[in-house]
Amino acid sequence: MEVKDIGLAAVMIISSIVITYKWLTRLGDSDPVIIISSMLLVGSLAIMIILLDSRLRNLEEALDAKERSIRINIKGVEENLETKIDELSKNTTSTIGEFSKRLYR
């Protein structure tokens, strides 16, 4: 977790406490249970968002690693295929050359 994530979570919790307190004082009695439950609600929401962000970053890193390995594998296959095609074209050229020599004899 980064410092900005923790800071934003703290801001979310503090703002929920202030909003709930002000809202309840305008309506009459302020119940500390409501204030604490709103703090827990917003705190759990903030933690859920932070954990979701962490999971998304882990998935992104895993996808990047797999993408790199696939690129390397494709490059290796491409090089192998290229050498085989070159050998095949040389063999085909030499075979065609032999056939053309036999035809002219």
Rank of each mutant, 00 (worst) to 15 (best):
6 I>L: 05
17 I>M: 03
83 T>P: 00
85 I>R: 13
56 L>Q: 12
98 E>W: 03
79 E>A: 11
52 L>P: 04
9 A>M: 08
100 S>G: 00
41 L>P: 04
14 I>Q: 04
73 N>H: 09
59 L>N: 12
41 L>R: 06
31 D>F: 14
57 R>W: 08
45 L>Q: 06
103 L>D: 12
15 S>R: 12
13 I>G: 00
87 E>A: 14
23 W>Y: 13
102 R>H: 08
68 R>P: 04
81 L>W: 04
18 V>S: 12
29 D>N: 06
61 E>Y: 06
87 E>K: 13
37 S>K: 05
16 S>F: 01
10 A>Q: 07
40 L>W: 09
68 R>K: 15
103 L>V: 12
39 M>F: 09
67 E>W: 01
47 I>K: 03
26 R>Q: 10
70 I>N: 10
6 I>W: 00
14 I>H: 12
65 A>V: 08
5 D>G: 11
62 A>G: 05
75 K>F: 08
35 I>R: 01
14 I>W: 03
60 E>Y: 10
63 L>H: 03
61 E>K: 07
43 G>D: 01
98 E>C: 01
66 K>A: 13
17 I>G: 00
82 E>I: 07
99 F>K: 10
12 M>N: 12
62 A>S: 10
9 A>W: 01
28 G>M: 00
54 S>A: 12
84 K>D: 11
47 I>N: 01
20 T>P: 06
47 I>R: 02
39 M>A: 15
93 T>W: 03
38 S>E: 13
67 E>Q: 13
1 M>R: 05
59 L>A: 13
14 I>C: 06
90 K>Q: 14
94 S>W: 08
79 E>L: 09
95 T>N: 03
10 A>T: 07
89 S>H: 07
79 E>W: 05
28 G>V: 02
51 L>N: 08
86 D>L: 03
43 G>P: 02
16 S>G: 15
67 E>F: 07
3 V>E: 10
2 E>I: 03
11 V>W: 04
101 K>S: 11
62 A>Q: 13
70 I>H: 03
105 R>P: 01
83 T>R: 13
104 Y>L: 11
81 L>V: 02
9 A>F: 02
85 I>N: 04
88 L>H: 03
45 L>K: 04
57 R>V: 13
27 L>H: 12
23 W>S: 10
